[in-house]
């Protein structure tokens, strides 16, 4: 982790946290991310890219991107996070650092609508085919409503929210509580 402290000033790392002795998370500006990853890979020994993924925060209108890199020498994983705007979802591509990065970026483009200009084949459909709705992994896309509207649900299926179900079983007279999300 002292390696990270050296980088802190240079890359304006705003938040660093140790989740476990072998796993840390840092947050960096989107503009500095590719440069930081390149240094991590080529100088600091974080040669292995585990995955790239996004977390959707519609409340704040942001996406959090997480790049998990791993250093085999020190057996340390580092999650490099960055926050980008949900409306102009654009990010610098890192396909030149790791070959598999372009696949992750292709998936993110399809599932979240985050664009990575310059990444090879980023606009090709990856998993979905003929998909016309919004990017399906965004949290405001309601998969259940879509499924019920599209796929002829078989009548007779009873779906109970487990909490409501247990509540009605155990306390039949209790008024249902508010939905917590």
């Amino acid at each position: 982790m002292e390696q990270i402290n050296e980088l802190k000033a240079r890359y304006s790392i705003s938040d660093s946290r140790d989740q476990r002795p072998d796993l840390g998370f840092i947050t960096v500006d989107p503009g500095r991310l590719a440069a930081l990853l390149a240094e991590l890979q080529q100088v600091r020994g974080y040669t292995h890219l585990s995955f790239i993924t996004a977390v959707d925060y519609p409340e704040t209108g942001t996406f959090q991107l997480t790049y998990m890199v791993h250093n085999f020498e020190s057996a340390h994983s580092l999650g490099v996070r960055t926050v980008i705007s949900r409306d102009t979802a654009l990010m610098e591509s890192v396909h030149h650092l790791w070959k598999q990065a372009k696949t992750y970026q292709r998936e993110l483009k399809e599932m979240y609508g985050i664009d990575f200009p310059g990444s090879p084949g980023v606009d090709d459909p990856f998993i979905l085919e003929g998909w016309q709705g919004p990017p399906p992994m965004r949290r405001d896309f309601d998969t259940r409503a879509y499924s019920e509207k599209t796929y002829f649900p078989r009548p007779g299926r009873k779906t109970s929210d487990p909490r409501r179900h247990m509540q009605s079983r155990l306390y039949p007279d209790y008024t249902p509580f508010e939905e917590e999300t």
Partner: peptide
Amino acid sequence: EYGYYLVSDGTAYPRRVHVRGPSYTHAVV
């Protein structure tokens, strides 16, 4: 390496779960 990346936001539902499977690189690139 098979991994689970879990983000919790303090509610009863996970905010995000990402599954990292090794075939992601082996079978594609």
